[in-house]
Amino acid sequence: MIKKETVWSILEEIPDPEIPVISIVELGITRDVHIDGDSVTVDITPTYSGCPAMGVIEKDIIGKLKAAGVENPKIKVVYSPVWTTDWLNDEAKEKLRKYGIAPPEKASHDKSLLTGKPKIIACPYCGSGKTKLISQFGSTACKALYKCENCLEPFDYFKCH
């Protein structure tokens, strides 16, 4: 019988398929691990409803657990509590920045979203606050597209959610 801690340490080794510098545990996708005899179930929650990486994540978890000797690992998709960028800790945010993705600014439900008051998002490359929103919808569901007006580099911003 595999231990809960062992399962968690396996999960911590699995990178997010779209942002491989952070693990699915750091991203907050893995919510719980249930062990009942020989059966292991991992609860996961999507970042966005239509996140296409979920299928790959499920496959990765199953593959890694099978490799560790778990015979028939199961995945359960849960929706409550609802995923939020507040679950990303400072260390994970720093990893995102180094990877070229501006991390989410605190306070998940962003009121400025509807009032349209722009927030200052610092460029992950040069640190300048002179940046401009190009599109609310970027390369993946969880990111928006920005441009730095100082170093002129385009960059992704991990949306507050």
């Binding site: 999507p46 966005y48 409803s49 239509g50 996140c51 599109s135 919808f137 970027g138 569901a141 597209l145």
Partner: peptide, 18 residues
């Protein structure tokens, strides 16, 4: 950008529908 925006929205909606 709008091509990406509309399909991103589509993706959210399909996820909700599922």
């Amino acid at each position: 950008e709008e091509d990406i925006a509309l399909t991103n929205i589509s993706l959210d909606l399909i996820g909700q529908a599922r």
